[in-house]
């Protein structure tokens, strides 16, 4: 342990950029990125379930507004959505005087709102596709056994749709991680924000950005393996046994 820490100190002593202080910036950037991505994914997921059910509804007045929402949020760049909410909040007359300002003053909250709305739109469509792909026979069996619509949704359609959605949702999680880099545009010190700060300070683009790229790469692989593990466990029922 002693040797390791000595080795580490020496390594840091050799360069001017990766000091304990800059590593601290990266560290807190990592925390911000993870918070932002994790929170928006969780809230987005909770929103997406009822939205996906509504999106699959036979009633047009339920289906159409949800479709418009997902169409607009999936069809426009996240950056625009971020700007819209960030500037929209800042330039909203009178908001500075209300209690909401305590929350909205930090760019974190507008960014969280934008990311959440964005991922909720994508996740809604992922779930809708999975709901639509429920085998007809399984729904028919549920009807034939006297299940009401609500019960069928809860017991048959959603549990099997969630499993089917898993691979696509894994991609969405990675997409959100990568998309979160634009939080730095509205002055949030996330991972990319930290890298930009360090670049500006030392004018060392390779050190600053390659390092952060490596961190993102590791995070991406961690998510990838997590989902592979989940798929293995939760999609086991679809694989025939080896004879």
């Amino acid at each position: 342990m002693q040797a390791l820490s000595e080795w580490f100190t020496e390594l840091l002593a050799d360069n001017t950029i990766f000091t304990a202080q800059t590593l601290g910036y990266y560290g807190s950037g990592l925390v911000t990125t993870v918070q932002l991505v994790f929170l928006s994914l969780i809230i987005g997921l909770v929103l997406a379930v009822p939205l996906a059910i509504g999106r699959s509804s036979q009633r047009r007045w339920i289906r159409t507004p949800i479709f418009l929402y997902t169409y607009v949020f999936r069809g426009t760049p996240l950056l625009i959505q971020l700007y819209l909410i960030y500037y929209g909040v800042v330039f909203f007359d009178g908001i500075q005087e209300t209690w909401l300002w305590v929350l909205l003053e930090e760019p974190f909250v507008p960014a969280l709102i934008a990311f959440t709305l964005n991922t909720a739109a994508y996740t809604t469509e992922i779930f809708r596709g999975a709901i639509k792909a429920t085998p007809r026979g399984e729904i028919e069996a549920a009807r034939a056994y006297g299940m009401s619509r609500r019960l069928m949704m809860r017991r048959i359609i959603l549990p099997s749709a969630f499993r089917r959605a898993l691979p696509a949702y894994g991609n969405e999680v990675i997409f959100m991680l990568h998309a979160s880099a634009i939080a730095s545009v509205v002055t949030i010190m996330d991972l990319t924000g930290a890298a930009r700060f360090i670049y500006a300070r030392y004018y060392a683009p390779f050190d600053a950005f390659l390092f952060v790229a490596a961190i993102y790469l590791c995070l991406t692989f961690a998510i990838l393996y997590l989902f592979r593990y989940l798929e293995k466990r939760l999609l086991a029922h679809l694989k025939p046994l080896e004879q």
């Binding site: 085998p135 026979g137 399984e138 069996a141 549920a142 099997s160 029922h237």
Partner: peptide
């Protein structure tokens, strides 16, 4: 086609 629920 049996229509057993595949996730159970």
């Amino acid at each position: 086609s049996f229509n057993l629920w595949a996730h159970m």
